[in-house]
Design a protein around this nucleic acid. Structure first.
Lengths: 337, 337
DNA sequence: ATGAAAGCGCTAACAG
DNA sequence: CTGTTAGCGCTTTCAT
């Protein structure tokens, strides 16, 4: 590994000068700069990011050019989109991202948070396990730049990019109601996740707005995974007095529901209508092409990264709160009744 | 951030002793060790990984506890499985992984390789863009521990974990032939990717083994993305003399094919049979449940990580080459003709 | 068994 | 404008 010293010797200047050149400090003679740049080229020098980060540790505002991304479940395509958004924006600004996938596991989330801290990241983009996440809250209070995605942190003022889950669910249910459905089942994700409660609220709002009483027996709480889509769909649909439509709380649940509906020999939309929260680029290849509430995952990630870098640049800027709209993609999984 | 010095003062020992304790050096008195451990607890000390890494830079064998993972396309669920495998194994051994997604883009791959190097990673798990990847080859020759996944590096002796693509394709095509199909279309991924050529070879092998001549017009080369599944399927199926079965070279292509087949109003398996390379956990929810060649992505990643850590532990061990088998998951997308 | 001190590569005062 | 130098937090000789 060629280092500052090598370049300095080659260019016959001091290492400080080399450092200035590679950091674009204006305080350096044009001629000297050229010499150094030449040396850098010749020696194929790349500054060591680790040393830089350690050295920067002394400064207040860190620019170690590395951020952490903490995701609840990388098997979920929605978070893959978020990841791509964060990564693209970060890379464009010369930041590296360490992505950690804690699989909805609080212990593992904590572990990663520790590791990320000791990696001296400049900041964190986090999708917290739940609204009351003390570990993340502490981090925020310790002064580390943090932006939360998808889920808000209760009791803490923090940058956040959200989605209007309530409206998303409301739209989906309204669509179903307009099609004539009155008995609409809802399989929710983990009850502790804020997005789940918002979606439930939207579901109830829509029902009430159309004068349809909420039937608690039609509502199931799962764990946001494929398996829970499977089991709750079966429960909901096995009785004779089954719902005519199903609203699923996230894409993994949707996939599970789809599988179970087919397994039970029911047809969509003939026997049962289905609307899922979360859209995938391959939703159209499902059987049938799925009507779904789309969240702009890529944009959420990108915007989150942007906000984080902004905060890293200015720790004291007021916190921002951006809310993205959802979009109901109407395809072929809902018929009128 | 509490550091060695803080702990040392608290425990009334030198920082060297603290360092020894946290690194489990045997050369420390039991009583002293207890004192230090107590201080660590009280102060909630976590060693700074950055400093450790930089400091270790002097040593030959680095144990900075960080590795890089370079992936061609994180939108592809197969690589998500690989990622999970690598991450799980790494974490269990106290390693952090920096995941970089280069999106099949050689420029970006190179960029990431540079960054990873200057992050002083202990080693790299890479799915190279193509067989003749000079950038990766150089890295290997520079002595950095590297293991390649999914694709081999020609002309370079390197640890590698592979899948028997040729046999996987062979099995799929044989299945189709046994069902009575004789005109089988193949939409391949990027021609430059080694796995593509192996799968093509398996396709041809199977045809020949059954005395069916290879018809080049039935073979299309795409770019391993969704879009190319769309367009090539259309081309292949629009003529009157269309194939009775389709074999798709990876999961993104499969999804595209599926979409196009439905769009053209054709039915599976009635009008056309479909077998895809790559299985997803939700393949069963597709229309129809997809017959597919499964690659054990998670295990590939896990094994790769294991081999990398082994090599980091012993740079001079002989290179290993492990080959995983594929499995043909027969579901409902292939009928007999 | 323990401590003092050098050094990893880099940045940012501080001098000149 | 440029060089000298003091760290950043940690590991590891080298003494003791």
């Amino acid at each position: 590994m060629v280092n500052l010293k090598d370049v300095a010797e080659f260019a016959a200047v001091s290492i400080a000068t080399v450092s200035r050149v590679i950091n674009n400090s204006p305080a350096v003679n044009t001629e000297t700069r050229r010499k150094v740049q030449h040396a850098v080229k010749m020696l194929n020098f790349h500054p060591n990011r680790v040393a830089r980060r350690l050295s920067k540790l002394r400064m207040k505002e860190g620019h170690g050019k590395i951020i952490g991304l903490l995701l609840p479940d990388i098997s979920n395509p929605f978070y893959v989109d978020v990841l791509r958004g964060v990564e693209d924006y970060a890379l464009k600004h010369d930041y590296v991202v360490i992505t950690c996938n804690f699989g909805q596991d609080e212990i593992r989330e904590k572990l990663f948070l520790n590791i990320l801290q000791s990696e001296s990241v400049d900041g964190l983009v986090v999708v917290p396990v739940r609204g009351l996440d003390e570990t993340v809250s502490q981090l925020v209070e310790s002064g580390l730049p943090v932006v939360c995605l998808d889920r808000e942190l209760s009791e803490i003022d923090v940058d956040v990019v959200l989605v209007d889950n309530r409206k998303g669910a409301y739209d989906a249910i309204s669509h179903l109601i307009q099609l004539g459905h009155r008995r609409i089942g809802f399989i929710s994700g983990l009850a502790k996740i804020p997005t789940s409660v918002e979606r439930l609220q939207g579901y109830k709002d829509a029902l009430e707005a159309h004068g349809i009483p909420v039937d608690e027996k039609l509502i199931k709480f799962g764990d946001s995974m494929h398996e829970s889509g499977l089991s709750h769909t079966q429960e909901l649909l096995k009785g004779k007095h089954r719902p005519t439509a199903l609203f699923t709380g996230n894409n993994l649940i949707t996939l599970g529901a789809l599988e179970m509906i087919h397994r039970m020999g029911l047809r969509i939309p003939g026997d049962i209508a289905l609307v899922g929260f979360d859209d995938m680029y391959w939703s159209i290849s499902l059987n049938p092409p799925l009507t779904a509430v789309r969240q702009p995952g890529y944009d959420i990630g990108k915007r989150g990264a942007e906000m984080l870098l902004d905060r890293i640049g200015d720790h004291s800027r007021p916190t921002t709160r951006v809310i993205f709209d959802t979009e109901l993609k109407i395809r072929n999984s809902c018929g009128s009744v």
